[in-house]
Computed example of a mutant assay.
Amino acid sequence: MVIEQKPKQAVAEQAVDLKSICRGIEQEMREINQQRTTFALEQINQDLKVCLPLMDFPDQQHLLELSAQMYQNFLKVERTAQQQTAFDQYAFDLAQHPTIQQSHFEQFALRDQYLLKHKGQAYVDLYDAGEGQLVYRRNPQYLARIFAPYLPDAERIFIENLAEQNMQRPIRDGGLTIDAQEVVRRALFWEDYVKNYPDSSYIRDARYLDQVYRMFLFKGTLNTPVSDSYEAEYAIQPSVWYEIEKLAKLEQSRLADQARKFRSFVQMSPQERRNRIPVSLTAQEQNNERANTLALKQLSHYLDLPLNGLSPTRDCFSDAVCMPYQNN
């Protein structure tokens, strides 16, 4: 049997075509704006799948960062005051009734009408950002599917896991949206990631996520505190205590060490805490009406947890990478 060979000229032309596509892809990404269609995005994303395997890591990173700006430009909507009111009402109605069929569609800005009709295409997502705000975003799975397969292991694993985690944002309106078991699962993942990939280009963000999930586990949040007093086992959320008891049995884990110290902290009397963990409250902290302000500060020192909450400048819960908050 004779196998027909592709002519050498055809192979050469195909290679030239690929080089041409890949040379022009950055400019195409920069030209995406709020007038373009999801079809244009999908074409670029297909070209990225072709070009990314041919690039070195710095060039891949450059396009990954550029893709964030590309989607921000695509999802930008300029609204009149009346159109903003109509969209805000839609957000409110959707929060109350998730299956609502939108009425008064014609009151929306034309770009809103287009994006709502095409959400789910080209990784366009409508996202509950809390406090009654609906915003468009790039679905976290975008980077996991378009970029991650072609990146080094450290970056691929970071993106794939953060994408999966942020399909369910962990915090909204000051409260946790995930249960204690999931908090522990994520906390253990980020502890292992920091340990296994110290040279990752995302190591700074991984360390931040490692700290945040420890904080969620042992302190909770403003609207979902782990405890009001930390003065006995029964004063701890039962689901949290159950997970901490399980954690305390693990070996070779900093999180497990903290779980064991947490149990010791809960067993201390207030006087013993004052003796063993000498901390003082600032004037601002003394004016805080929360009853557990002192206990939280003592716990933070005892377990070496961050005193402050979430970063006011960096968002690690909306996408598959951490990004600066946008000024809207």
Rank of each mutant, 00 (worst) to 15 (best):
F189S: 01
V184L: 10
R186P: 01
E106H: 14
D112L: 00
F105K: 10
N166A: 03
T177F: 07
D210C: 08
V226I: 08
E155P: 09
L54H: 10
I277N: 01
R290Q: 15
R23V: 11
R169E: 12
L75I: 08
Q101T: 10
E78G: 06
R172T: 13
N196C: 07
R214N: 11
K297C: 04
R30I: 14
Q46E: 13
C322R: 07
L188Y: 12
H104W: 05
D173Y: 03
E233K: 07
Y150G: 04
Q9P: 03
Y193C: 00
D153Q: 15
C322D: 09
K49F: 03
L110C: 06
Y302E: 01
D319H: 13
A163T: 03
Q284G: 13
D205Y: 15
D210T: 05
Q69S: 13
R138F: 02
Q14A: 14
A91V: 02
N196P: 02
F262C: 06
I25H: 02
Q35Y: 14
A68N: 09
P238D: 05
Q121F: 08
S280R: 14
S67T: 04
P58E: 04
K6I: 15
Q165H: 12
S201D: 15
Y193H: 04
L305F: 06
R186V: 10
E31S: 14
N139K: 11
R207A: 02
Q83Y: 05
A68Y: 10
Q181T: 11
D125S: 11
I159H: 09
N45H: 14
E28P: 07
K117G: 10
D179I: 08
F57M: 08
E160H: 04
R169A: 09
A187P: 06
A283T: 14
Q181I: 04
G174F: 04
N223H: 13
V184G: 04
R185I: 03
Y208N: 06
A187R: 00
L209C: 08
H62S: 13
A144G: 07
V266R: 00
N73Y: 05
Q141K: 12
Q69H: 11
Q141A: 12
Q133N: 14
I44S: 03
T293G: 07
I159Q: 07
Q165N: 11
L310N: 13
A109H: 01
N308Y: 12
D210W: 11
Q271P: 01
V212F: 05
Q9N: 11
L41R: 05
D304I: 11
H118A: 07
N161T: 12
Q34K: 14
T293Y: 06
V226E: 00
P140M: 00
